[in-house]
Amino acid sequence: MEHPTYKRVVLKLSGEALAGQQGYGIDSEVITSIAQQVKEVVDLKVEVAIVVGGGNIWRGIAGSSKGIDRATADYMGMLATVMNSLALQDALETIGVPTRVQSSITMQQVAEPYIRRRAIRHLEKGRVVIFAAGTGNPFFSTDTTAALRAAEIEAEVILMAKNKVDGVYSADPFKDSTAIKYDTLTYLEVLNKNLGVMDSTASSLCMDNNIPLIVFSITESGNIKRVVQGEKIGTIVRSV
């Protein structure tokens, strides 16, 4: 029998991860592959919560740079994460994984409101919980949402799945051939070296609450399961 290293995890997916090679929107093959990888983890009796970004549809910062009020642009980005969350929920339930979407912005026709104790109860019952609409507040990223929700539900680790890189590098590996991949880092090193793994708010929140972060590639099938089982792939970031 396969034994997972972690019992409760938060999986952070970027919106771009759902877009695949097309770079925009939702790629049905990619989202189906991600759902299958999540199912492999759920089958290990691991409790999985997911935070998904919305960059494949809309980015608040990009919108504000074009003249849209920053708060308004961020709210638009939150709605994009709801669209991604519903698509991911459908992909998971199609393959038999019970799923609940909880939104930080009330929209009762399509999602439950975010309630911490209810989210924990869903996880205990074996349901995947997808946290949509970020924190519900502008000026906060979905990275910060992942850190906040991980602290709230007492997750053991945040799994940050990337679709372009397989860990944290000293520089952009696509622009700098001398970039070095790190196996381990501390949050202070991430902040001091400005590595851009997460924004500073999210990094500080993880550091203060002693929540480890594992950055890895999602493009290779089965990687989420490997990480959950303790296989050393990607980069792990710890408080100390």
Results as ranks from 00 to 15, higher is better:
Arg127Val: 06
Lys45His: 15
Lys12Phe: 07
Lys39Asn: 13
Val30Ser: 07
Leu79Trp: 06
Thr219Gly: 10
Ser204Pro: 05
Ser65His: 10
Gly67Asn: 15
Val197Asn: 01
Pro138Ile: 02
Thr144Asp: 07
Asn192Glu: 15
Gly136Gln: 03
Ile95Pro: 12
Asp43Val: 14
Met107Ala: 14
Gln21Trp: 13
Pro138Arg: 00
Ile31Met: 05
Glu189Thr: 05
Ile34Met: 02
Thr99Asp: 08
Asp143Trp: 00
Gln36Glu: 15
Ala202Leu: 06
Gly167Lys: 01
Met78Ile: 09
Thr81Ile: 08
Val51Asn: 04
Ser177His: 12
Val38Thr: 11
Gln229Tyr: 11
Ser177Cys: 12
Arg116Lys: 14
Ser14Met: 09
Gly23Leu: 14
Pro113His: 08
Arg117Met: 13
Ile34Leu: 13
Ile34Glu: 02
Tyr169Lys: 07
Leu13His: 05
Lys39Cys: 10
Val190Thr: 09
Leu88Phe: 11
Arg59Gly: 00
Val9Glu: 03
Ile115Cys: 09
Thr145Leu: 08
Asn137Tyr: 11
Tyr6Pro: 04
Ile105Ser: 07
Gly134Glu: 01
Val227Ser: 02
Asn163Glu: 13
Val168Thr: 08
Lys175Ser: 11
Ile236Thr: 15
Val52Thr: 11
Ile211Ser: 12
Lys232Cys: 13
Met207Ile: 15
Tyr169Gln: 09
Gly96Tyr: 04
Lys162Gly: 06
Ser85Asn: 02
Thr201Trp: 13
Glu47Asp: 10
Leu18Arg: 08
Trp58Lys: 03
Arg116Leu: 11
Val9Asn: 04
Phe140Val: 06
Tyr75Lys: 11
Val227Trp: 03
Tyr182Lys: 13
Asp176Trp: 10
Tyr169Glu: 01
Ile130Leu: 02
Val10Trp: 02
Val168Lys: 03
Gly53Asn: 00
Gly53Thr: 06
Arg8Thr: 07
Met76Asp: 00
Ala146Ile: 03
Asn209Phe: 15
Asn209Pro: 14
Arg100Phe: 03
Thr94Ile: 14
Ile158Tyr: 07
Ser103His: 04
Asp27Trp: 12
Ala150Asp: 04
Gly25Asn: 09
Glu231Cys: 08
Leu205Asn: 03
Ala111Ser: 14
Met198Tyr: 09
Cys206Glu: 07
Val38Trp: 03
Val38Lys: 09
Met107Phe: 08
Lys45Arg: 15
Trp58Ala: 09
Ala161His: 01
Asp43Lys: 15
Gly53Pro: 04
Trp58Gln: 01
Val9Thr: 02
Ile236Ser: 15
Ile153Val: 06
Ala202Trp: 01
Gly77Phe: 00
Gln37Arg: 10
Thr5Ala: 12
Val101Arg: 03
Asp199Tyr: 08
Tyr187Cys: 10
Asn84Gln: 10
